[in-house]
Amino acid sequence: MTTATLETTRRSARAAVRRRGRRDLLKHLGLGAFVLLMLYPLIWMIVSSFKPDHLILTEPGLIPSEMTFDNFAEGWNALNRPFSVFFANSLIVTVGAIVGNLFSCSLTAFALARLEFRMRKVYLAITLVSVMLPMHVLVIPQYIFFSQLDLVNTYYPLLIPKFLATDAFFVYLMVQFIRTIPRDLDRAAWIDGSGPFRTFWYVILPLMRPALVTTTIFTFIWTWNDFFVPLIYLTSPKMFTVPVALNSMVDSETQSGVGMLFAMSLLSLLPVLIFFAVAQKQLIRGIATTGLK
């Protein structure tokens, strides 16, 4: 390649970058405005958590006339023990649930998506049907089951189901992902003499990474925010997860402590947000390194 052609290529590349820059700027402006609109409720909540309680509902604007950290200080200690206890509890449950789901759902999904066996379609249908169950009718029989095993007020009723692939959503998610992976890859492994376990472990699981990350993110968020199941199984306040603790701060009849509720809700958002921010980087890297070659 001559210097001249190299120069032309560079110049046109720069022009392209400039054009793209302008287009991106417009995109950013549009997206920025949209982000603001979307996040207005949250911003209001953040501002409100720094307002004294009596101003939150009376002073609707975004600029507070008075600032205070009381909501955080009081909220942190509002329930006899520092809020860190509830964070720790939520973390235990969440990490356990993630591990359980990754383990059990990936095994199940691989079998359902790739292995050939009788009744495969039936199994898939059952999985899908169990996504359709409204949880409220299952709660009572399940509770009776776990209370017979004397597991109420432990984290087992929240975790055992996760290790048993009962979050059919994720099984289904992974099945769909595996189906988008070209068959040639595992056929090649098959020809090389790998059995199903090696194929799963060395070929499919690495390629499933985006689905695994998605499962992790969703499990984290759903478990972190889940209220009804922990409420029923965790009776003792020291076992509460964050949402149960938050709920026990507010009285449904009066709305005292809105400021504290906002402050603690925001704090409880932080781990999920941080996790999401980190995990999504992971998601990009995962795809960048594995690619789909």
Binding site: I92, G96, Y156, L159
Partner: peptide, 16 residues
């Protein structure tokens, strides 16, 4: 680690 940790803590969680 997760399974172990979750299990242990759950065991410790019985009564006040």
């Amino acid at each position: 680690a997760g399974a172990l940790g979750a299990g242990l803590t759950a065991c410790g969680g019985g009564s006040e």
